[in-house]
Design a binder for these strands. Structure first.
Lengths: 340, 340
DNA sequence: TGTTCACATGTGCACGGTCACAAATGTGAA
DNA sequence: TTCACATTTGTGACCGTGCACATGTGAACA
């Protein structure tokens, strides 16, 4: 006589209900903190839950409520410090708010790949999407697929106000630029990020704004790809010309590449050339020379991002705190007055 | 007469069935590629699905099958390059295999925080867990909570064979150590990672093994925390002594901190001291000097990791390919024969 | 004593799939 | 023609939770 294995099904609210001598609905009410439950009943139910090691079944919940409590992150270059920190911060904030996070990485940013990643998120029934990627293209695809979930992008250029978080990248870039100008530099290059990243655009804008405001003539920014390798190659070319005394790089990695190229060219930093980065990755303080850069508070960024996204969900009030987060200039040893 | 809003419920399997003139079960069969479905029927159903933009509801599926198709990642220091790359690789591999990934970050690695993160994952009904964190402690907690999901750790020390992926960290560390010995170094320090990270332990083991095998006397490794800051402070102390000619650091960030401290101490690298790192982060080639290090293939790592995890799920065959992934030594300019 | 009302709890079904089993249809050999 | 059997399709229950609605209970009040 082959005995059936006592299939260990996880306890459900009905199991709890039976043992507590109440109906399953009462258990459900306890779970959801319904106001009108007698204290004694609630205590009894909670006790049984603890005894049974009861865990609510998320799938069942999602099914009956029609809400998944999951948000999606669409991310590119997610192993770099900036994106990685943002992702971590967002996940923490989401967990705090009782949400789950699913990340879809983009290896390439072509249409097809973006579509695939978005599909993955939609199949998962995400309630909202955070975009950490070349946002312009992603938005195009979102529109094409007529996807209707609320979404949030991490940075602001000013004209996407509904969806954008006001981390003041522009102000950060102005800070960096102003620092160089104040030191006496007048011929300053900007090594920008990819044009379709909103962060890159904002930092470039900040650079141009500040140069304009201070009446310093500018040259066209160089468009990079965020990597140290690009910074290095751009540097090799730039340092052949030497028609400038400072460079503002839109992230720390490219700044590192630039410094490498400067050494190859026999130039001293900051003696011959000043360099400013952006992000303040943890390694920046240990570069040679330690890098002057702009620090962002990624933790705060993540919290705000989730707050904004949740406020866009149906049935929520608009968010209160939309003050921009201000980045901070961290002065180290890669900047100095120009040699004349 | 207020007309009810035509509540836009997503089309279900039954909607498809009605329009295709079949039963809902037939639609389900089409979805799951059941073998005995007439081609013509299948085509018709697929057509209707396309017309309706039908998307299967994941929650319903999870509920009725009792399987969530989700795996969890438990990660610490997830914005550093190593963990971040692993996470990205695992997510890609999981998506490839039709799985969803949920990441829980650990800010601190105390009992409480690990429990909270594991709870988050369990509530989500993950089918398996990948641990990228101080694994020793996590395993303790897993046991305490009597959690029964299969789990996989990213690296192997050899004695955790069921759950561990054979990335040969030990061999990588031996490669690095051997390189220093071959250059003629005899007094070599090891700056290790935190003791409860299995990667750290494996790299230390590799170092000690190789030193032993080559009959070179060793000193006790220094236990660090993976950060460049720690490398810097350790370096300040070490370079006061100078009773050595080379250091093998168990990751690139700490190596960077060491190089920073060396410059502060007026030492030339590699003239006075040789340094080897581990990971080959993209910035390592642009350090000053460019760092000799050990490269791991994170993409392959992620794929294997998922393959191993899925093979541990009930109803799967044991995995075929358990050959260890071999890391590669990348020789740059931070190592040279010792000065005598 | 009956009426009203707030509070506390119970009943039954819906959510969108899958599963076990039954039924219908087709196919070929006796 | 009939039976055996494989192929294809349908029926109804079920997974665990939340919702709408019904019901029971006791206090306050006329």
């Amino acid at each position: 006589m082959t005995e059936n294995l006592p299939k260990v099904r996880a306890p459900s609210i009905r199991d709890v209900a039976r043992l507590a001598g109440v109906s399953h609905q009462t258990v459900s009410r306890v779970l959801n903190n319904h106001p009108s439950i007698r204290e004694s009943t609630k205590a009894r139910v909670l006790q049984v839950m603890a005894d049974l090691q009861y865990r609510p079944n998320r799938a069942a919940r999602a099914l009956s409520r029609g809400r998944s409590r999951t948000i999606g992150i669409l991310s590119a270059q997610s192993s770099e410090y900036g994106p990685a920190s943002s992702i971590a911060a967002i996940q923490d904030a989401a967990r705090e708010a009782g949400y789950y996070v699913n990340t879809a990485n983009l290896d390439t940013v072509d249409q097809e790949s973006i579509e695939a990643a978005l599909m993955h998120l939609m199949l998962q029934a995400v309630e909202g999407i955070v975009v950490i990627a070349p946002q312009v293209r992603v938005f195009d695809v979102l529109e094409q697929l007529s996807i209707t979930v609320p979404f949030v992008s991490l940075q602001s250029t000013g004209h996407l106000d509904d969806h954008a978080l006001s981390v003041d990248q522009i102000a950060g870039a102005r800070l960096a630029t102003r620092h160089l100008i104040d030191l006496g530099h007048r011929r300053i290059y900007h090594l920008a990020g990819p044009q379709d990243w909103i962060e890159a655009e904002a930092r470039m804008r900040g650079f141009l704004d500040e140069m304009g405001a201070m009446d310093v003539p500018t040259t066209a920014p160089i468009l990079g790809d965020w990597t140290a390798d690009f910074g290095y190659h751009a540097g090799r070319e730039l340092f052949g010309r030497r028609d400038f005394t400072a460079i503002f790089s839109s992230n720390d990695q490219m700044a590192l590449g630039l410094m490498h190229a400067a050494r190859d060219a026999g130039l001293d930093i900051p003696g011959d050339i000043s360099i400013v980065g952006f992000d303040d990755i943890p390694e920046a303080a240990h570069f040679w020379p330690p890098l002057t850069t702009v620090r962002q508070d990624f933790g705060e960024l993540g919290r705000r991002c989730i707050a904004l996204l949740l406020s866009n969900l149906p049935g929520s009030e608009p968010i209160a705190d939309r003050e921009p987060i201000m980045p901070r200039l961290i002065v180290r040893e890669s900047t100095a007055p120009p040699a004349f």
